[in-house]
Design a protein around this nucleic acid. Structure first.
Lengths: 320, 320
DNA sequence: ATGAAAGCGCTAACAG
DNA sequence: CTGTTAGCGCTTTCAT
């Protein structure tokens, strides 16, 4: 068996073998329309027997929709995203959806190209970490495909969203530094687009504590280890009195720690590495797997005909 | 523009607008068959003008092949794979292929299901880190879809392969430990299938050095940080004289380091974390991005009609 | 060099 | 409850 060239088993073969029309076969396998239980059983048995697999192309041609979910993200090699992706994969598999990944480097042109590819492929739905694309384009995508945006406001009332509560996470981190006795703080902000919440909340909390010149205590750097090292030195050069630093993400935090400035650092994300460093990193934990899982859940409910939802996941400070 | 419900631009619309038949449009956009340069130019201009995008479904229905590449891997959250995946994504995008990721947890049933999904989807090609699937099934997949296996021997003369030279990497690591004065070594082997080379080479090198009871100095543990901690304690309980440990991968190595046994440890893979630990981890570096890129390159040559190739990438010991 | 005809495998709409 | 009819949009013959 399974030798030589392959001949496809079609819905007509099943219909013939089961002694019914192909429409009945279609109904039996898709569970649509009314069929007698006996007929359905017989058809399903025949499908099994012939090892029939419906053609995704033919089906897509009729329905204009593939059994595919698109996942748009900036960089799978950035330690934040693999955990999210895992949650997406697991939840998608549970719904029988395959996942097409589009890596964009947070580049506007790449994100736009991804939206084009998603529409062309007739994806059943899309989940996206869009960092550079404008709301209008996102909205346009949402009109063509059920869409859930991650960690970004929905561009209109048709697009669902799931986000982590950055203000809450940031507030917990900064208050923790104050509570630990650090009276003068700095922040390493990530040089990324569309992520203003952490910086904004940092400034707010500093103002509440009567900290002098909050805005002057923020430096922006690429969200990498090297960026963190350079950034913290810059910060301390300008404000030697700083003893506590809040970083936009863990990579920046790790870089800051490695700079040898002796300051206390709190990171954001809780990537795997954070717990394994010596000393380990205190950071704001976001449940990345849960984020991925929730994104698919929200998309799934949309596919099932429910209106767009907007979920907010609560981060939690992990003191190490 | 772009408001209201969407009407698809078809090949017939282009044909009509350009004043040619639809075959001519097909020929112009696919570069197949003979067309006068003037006609082609005109058709291409019309395509541009109408923003025509061929239907992937209709095309797939005729050709039984999608513009999609399947990537099968055990766990995207395992730090080894995101870097490989990035290489795959970049190289695939350069060839205009979308990537569908199948996460298997190295489970035989999941790997088999992935092969089914790949065939059903009519993927243009497949790249796989198959850990549990038998050669016969792999061979069957290779008969249906151009296939490249990663870090595993090709099951037959139709399946291409790309692998890292594990024996060379292992030898470098173990010789390094001996050269550093460690006369008694242990190994933390990963409890995974189909990856015997590292253990085998470890045993070989110990034998060459006249080390007593090589096989007795290997313990097997889950390839995780926790596995490494437990494994190294087990190793030292049985052989307190061990001062150097070779680990199947970096996660095991990190776990071994954290056990506080004070032994020298060499890891394998050089995941991002390895360089950031304090002290940093000496490990066998494999270029994961390059592996991903090469997998696509080898697949691409296969798609272009070349015979299956077998590439071996050289790892290199990174002393830290 | 171009066009006409045929059909890939499926499901929505309509009969019965 | 089940069958018939009619395409979805494209590429592959085969003519011309």
């Amino acid at each position: 068996m399974d030798s030589g060239s392959f001949v496809r088993v079609t819905i007509d073969d099943v219909a013939r073998a089961a002694g019914v029309s192909r429409q009945t076969v279609s109904r039996a396998m898709n569970g649509k329309g009314d069929i007698s239980a006996a007929t359905r059983r017989k058809v399903l048995a025949t499908i099994e027997e012939l090892d029939y697999r419906p053609s995704a192309f033919a089906r897509g041609m009729r329905t204009q929709r593939a059994g595919t979910l698109a996942l748009v993200l900036p960089d799978i090699a950035n330690p934040f995203f693999p955990a999210v992706a895992r949650g997406v994969f697991d939840a998608a598999a549970a719904r029988g959806l395959a996942v097409v990944v589009h890596n964009t480097d947070a580049d506007a042109a790449a994100e736009a190209e991804a939206t084009r590819a998603i529409v062309d492929a007739g994806a059943a739905g899309a989940i996206g970490f869009f960092e550079a694309l404008d709301d209008a384009s996102l909205s346009a995508l949402g009109r063509r495909v059920p869409l859930v945006v991650a960690d970004r406001p929905s561009p209109d009332d048709q697009v669902a969203s799931v986000r982590s509560d950055f203000p809450a996470g940031t507030r917990a981190a900064v208050e923790h530094l104050f509570a630990a006795g650090h009276a003068r703080l700095g922040m390493l902000d990530g040089a990324v687009q569309n992520k203003p919440e952490r910086r904004r909340t940092f400034l707010e909390v500093l103002t509440e504590h009567g900290h002098p010149d909050p805005a002057g205590h923020v430096v922006t750097a690429p969200p990498t280890v090297a960026g963190g090292t350079a950034g913290v030195r810059d910060l301390r050069a300008r404000h030697p009195e700083i003893t506590g630093v809040f970083a936009f993400n863990d990579l920046l935090a790790i870089g800051a720690l490695r700079a040898g400035e002796g300051v206390a650092v709190v990171g954001y994300d809780d990537i795997m590495m954070a717990a394994l460093l010596d000393p380990p990193l205190t950071t704001v934990h976001t449940d990345k797997y849960e984020l991925g899982r929730t994104l698919v859940e929200v998309l799934g409910r949309r596919l099932d005909g429910h209106p767009p939802e907007h979920r907010v996941l609560a981060p939690r400070l992990t003191v190490r």
